[in-house]
């Protein structure tokens, strides 16, 4: 199975961190972004680790992506779509699928035996494109944070 990234949310790790801070801060988004830039990547690592550890995966829903996926048969895709209702997949006939997914669902796919075969090529593509290195490391790396 092969995934090719078409598009993903800009600055995904900042977006996730902003969503997390939104709940606990009275500041505007611009002020939160300045605060996050000032605190630096170690603080982002702390926030992302906390979200993955505490199963507060809702903040990951703001990191979204669309991909072309090849090599997945219709019955396999249907089985995944039945269980993971927030994936959107459009059949392109013999050319594969247009798949749109958010990072929460991607983590849930990764952690699920039935979902893992779909998650693996998507995660490999995120790594190849270096889209969200810190998130990739914490959610899918060798020492991934357990949920």
């Amino acid at each position: 199975m092969k995934a090719s990234l078409i598009w993903s949310s800009p600055r995904p790790e900042m977006t996730i961190a902003v969503a997390m801070r939104r709940c606990y801060s009275t500041k505007t988004i611009e002020e939160i972004e300045v605060e996050l830039e000032k605190k630096g990547p170690e603080y982002w690592r702390f926030l992302l680790t906390k979200c993955l550890q505490d199963k507060s995966l809702d903040v990951l829903e703001h990191f979204t992506m669309s991909l072309l996926l090849e090599g997945m048969a219709e019955p396999e895709m249907s089985a995944v779509l039945r269980r993971f209702q927030f994936i959107r997949a459009a059949d392109l006939g013999g050319s594969g699928w247009l798949v749109s997914v958010n990072a929460r669902t991607l983590v849930e796919l990764w952690r699920d035996r039935g979902g893992r075969p779909l998650a693996e090529p998507i995660v490999a593509e995120l790594r190849r494109q270096n889209v969200s290195p810190l998130f990739n490391d914490l959610a899918f790396g060798e020492g991934a944070v357990a949920g």
Binding site: S4, I6, W7, T64, S66, L68, R88, A90, L92, G93, S95, G96, L98, S100
Partner: peptide, 25 residues
């Protein structure tokens, strides 16, 4: 979402999706 990027990727594949389908993406 960069809809133009999706449309370009579909075009490169020779595929077309109706607006109604793209609304989910």
């Amino acid at each position: 979402t960069d809809l133009k990027a999706i449309e370009r990727a579909l075009e490169a594949k020779g595929a077309h999706l109706d607006t109604d389908v793209l609304m989910d993406h």
